[in-house]
Design a protein around this nucleic acid. Sequence first.
DNA 1: TTTTCGTTCCTAGCGCTGCTAGATCTCGGA
DNA 2: TCCGAGATCTAGCAGCGCTAGGAACGAAAA
Lengths: 190, 190
Amino acid sequence: MSIQSRKERERAEREKLIITAARELAEAEGWEAVTTRRLAERVEYSQPVLYSHFKGKGAIMAAVAVESCADLAVELRAARTAAPDARHAIAGVSAAYVAFADRHPALYDVIFSLDVPLPFATPEAPPALQAAFGELAEAVRPYSGDDDLGALTETFWAALHGLVTLMRGGRLPRELHDLRLSLFLARFTG
Amino acid sequence: MSIQSRKERERAEREKLIITAARELAEAEGWEAVTTRRLAERVEYSQPVLYSHFKGKGAIMAAVAVESCADLAVELRAARTAAPDARHAIAGVSAAYVAFADRHPALYDVIFSLDVPLPFATPEAPPALQAAFGELAEAVRPYSGDDDLGALTETFWAALHGLVTLMRGGRLPRELHDLRLSLFLARFTG
DNA sequence: TTTTCGTTCCTAGCGCTGCTAGATCTCGGA
DNA sequence: TCCGAGATCTAGCAGCGCTAGGAACGAAAA
């Protein structure tokens, strides 16, 4: 029993090691630099070991996405609860969301942009995703009026996402970002 | 002189052929299916010929993006000019934008999502991009009030982009799309 | 203690990618 | 008719995600 559990523990540790290595490599050099060979080298195992833990590269990315999303949820919550009123809350959450994308572009991408095998928008979605969405929803709630909170939160989220991704892709000038965000918030909150 | 011009004409025709083939292949099977080998086979030339016309695969994608963006601009213009008033105009342009993304996901991606070597948000941006942006701007103008039209149009565009990409990536449920769009428009137009 | 057997892990390799060097072939001009 | 320049192809490089098959290890049985 003890041997069995030791092996399982070591295996879990190694899995964690792989996820962390992937995350660090992605943050440092972007996902295009995260190859199975480099990842294997980094964790000091051979390539096939990765496949005994994950179905493929996509599954590794999905694991990083879930882990990162939990971090994002924490930051959103902190921004929301630190605000003195609803107006500061939604502005603070927006700013925290954008700041996360700015500080961790690779993590943002793997959660929200890249094609990873993860269930979204369903009850089977990872709790971390639901938690992050829930934080946005709580910030939006005071402004929902008679509208459906879920759909309105999705709309709010989509706008933030659009602002972030278009700017990061070089499609929008960085200089106007703060202005765009405040214009959006002004219209959204009425 | 005549031989020279004939060669140039044939060269231009072949370049057009490559772009069209790339576009068709991308629309039919997605950009991951557009490899230089398949493209070369399709235009019935060898792989290196592609590189005598374009710097690389990215440049071919950029060419498709510009061409497609011109189409998008036409559709946006049609939607806008067909509308009887400002409210129908911005709703119609929004619907046309979303419909384009829905009917031509590969083209939408290469214009707005994928990493292609094209200048955006600068005076050197291709006219087609500026034309499409201009159509959005004209639809937004009646609702700009004292706000900067450029920044507000960017914000409007970003929201549409977010709605489109999150839904297409499976992050937002399709069923609520119309509701989300109308919620956004209601808030945006005040 | 020795042998067996199951698991774990690595080496090697497949088919694919974008891209390019160098040989070959075509064709206009002398 | 022959030459030379340009166009085009064949073949190959380094890298990708992924996997088959064998070697080495360690726990249980003799």
